[in-house]
Design a protein around this nucleic acid. Structure first.
Length: 428
RNA sequence: GGAUAGAUGGCCGAGCGGUCGAAGGCGCACGAUUGGAAAUCGUGUGUACCCCCAAAGGGUACCGUGAGUUCGAAUCUCACUCUAUCCGCCA
């Protein structure tokens, strides 16, 4: 959420930001928003002055004589009626205003490339060499089949499409990746935390998932709860409504959780294999820091660096993509995606998404801190980034590290988490 | 699933229709005292919003959430949420 006062004082900047993010006037009308804000304030002023008068009368009653009492009560009662009418109108307008504010996206960073969709994303750098195969490489599905690493067809019968079951060394590999990343994050000062995948509705508004994309999230109507698509959802609301001390910041969470996504908008995309599934596991990096753009940009770079280290430790070639204004989601100020090379698709595929949200989420969750020097209460900045997400990360992993006989090499950094194994597969 | 108890400020805790934004304590900040500190004493100590160019000032709301009763609600009524304990079930 943005600050309404900021919006009003910087109408042109905000209009420009909206445009860059792909919001046209018929989606979000700033003139209507400011007019509504003024109307709400007017109603507030008049309803508050009635409340004031009413309070005065009520207070007068206790000291009034029994003769004056009935007339004061009658007066106060009449004011009460008037108050209620105004209050109803105010509530309606206020709800309308709140909804509009919930729909306002964050302003993009001036550093972000400007463009309407992913075609305008900019490759900032490529790291690692794309391997030249001396044989015809297999895709990850074939590799799983020849090594007896999966039960893809059978699990589809049990659990439906876009689910996966992997076994033997590959199952161990999946968990090993998370352990490796959690260890790394702990070394960087993160608090390792495992969180539920069950969420009430409110955190979805806090994160900025709602009111934007209800279709994407699983809803369990019997209990009116939702299945979380990322630990970010939970971690973002974990400290909601608190006023932290500045000394507590930054708060660094390494959150592990199963994640659920309906993939409603991805029909027909990546239907086979491990790239896009309804349920997966993710270790998430989440940062809560001071309200200072230099501070949060510093953390943004730090998070990016950590996930680059992860891909480097996994010895995967990757590129750093800076996401353009039109392709980043509403909550985001600035976003990088990391994409690892997938030989069978002859392209880079997203493994990490690293975002600075600035205070946009904190305004929604009402998460603040008291500044040491000024004693002022300010909204925190939040940031999030993937640590590692499986099984997707297994796709570039298997394909890049495969040998001609179908075995897969384990990079040195991961070997301790694989019981010292240097290579996995049926033929080794 | 069944049965009880409960939800008050940063924390503990009183209040059970008006004088309550809320006693008292702890904590915290500032000041006095001290060579310095501890102890002691004094003062202060929530958030959001509205009016106001701003400051000063004035006002409204908030005692889990939402509705209701009343001239007036932390206090009474209802619903909901959450927490604790016991029983049952269970990885």
């Amino acid at each position: 959420m943005l600050d309404i006062k900021f919006i009003i004082e910087n109408l042109d900047t905000v209009r420009d930001g909206l445009e860059k993010k792909g919001y046209t006037k018929d989606v979000l009308d700033l003139d209507a928003l400011t007019a509504l804000y003024k109307e709400v304030n007017k109603l507030k002023t008049s309803s508050q002055s009635i409340a004031e008068e009413k309070n005065k009368l009520s207070n007068a009653i206790k000291s009034a004589s029994s003769e004056e009492r009935p007339s004061i009560i009658a007066k106060s009662k009449a004011l009460g009626e008037e108050f209620k009418l105004l209050q109803d109108e105010l509530n309606t307008k206020q709800d309308e205003f709140n909804l509009m504010m919930l729909k306002m996206p964050n302003m993009p960073s001036p550093e972000s490339p400007i463009g309407p969709d992913d075609s305008a994303n900019v490759v900032r750098r490529k790291v690692g060499n794309i391997r030249e195969f001396s044989f015809t490489p297999r895709d990850h599905i074939e590799l799983m089949e020849i090594n007896d690493w999966s039960e893809m067809e059978r699990i589809a019968k049990v659990s439906g499409s876009r689910t996966y079951a992997i076994k033997n060394d590959l199952a161990q590999l999946e968990l090993a990746m998370h352990m490796m990343v959690l260890d790394k994050l702990r070394e960087h000062g993160f608090t390792v935390i495992t969180v539920p995948s069950i969420s009430k509705e409110k955190p979805l508004y806090g994160q900025g998932y709602l009111p934007f994309s209800r279709d994407e999230v699983y809803h369990l109507p019997n209990d009116d709860v939702y299945l979380s698509g990322t630990a970010e959802l939970i971690l973002n609301s974990l400290r909601a409504d608190e006023i932290l001390t500045e000394n507590e910041l930054p708060i660094l969470y390494a959150g592990f959780s199963p994640c659920f996504r309906r993939e409603a908008g991805a029909a027909g995309k990546d239907t086979r294999g491990l790239v896009r599934v309804h349920q997966f596991m993710k270790t998430e990096q989440f940062v809560i820091c001071k309200n200072d753009i230099n501070e949060s940009e510093k953390w943004h770079q730090k998070l990016l660096q950590i996930s680059e280290e992860v891909l480097q430790d996994l010895e995967l070639p990757y590129q750093v993509l800076e996401v353009c204004t039109g392709d980043m989601g509403a909550p985001k100020y600035r976003q990088y995606d990391l994409e690892a090379w997938v030989p069978s698709q002859n392209c880079y595929r997203e493994t990490h998404s690293c975002s600075n949200i600035t205070e946009w989420q904190a305004r929604r969750t009402n998460l603040r801190y008291r500044e040491n020097e000024s004693g002022k209460v300010k909204f925190v900045h939040t940031l999030n980034n993937t640590g590692i997400a499986t099984p997707r990360a297994l796709v570039p992993f298997m394909e890049n590290h495969q040998n001609e006989d179908g075995t897969v090499n384990i990079p040195v950094k991961l070997q301790p988490y694989m019981g010292g194994k240097k290579i996995i597969g049926k033929n080794c």
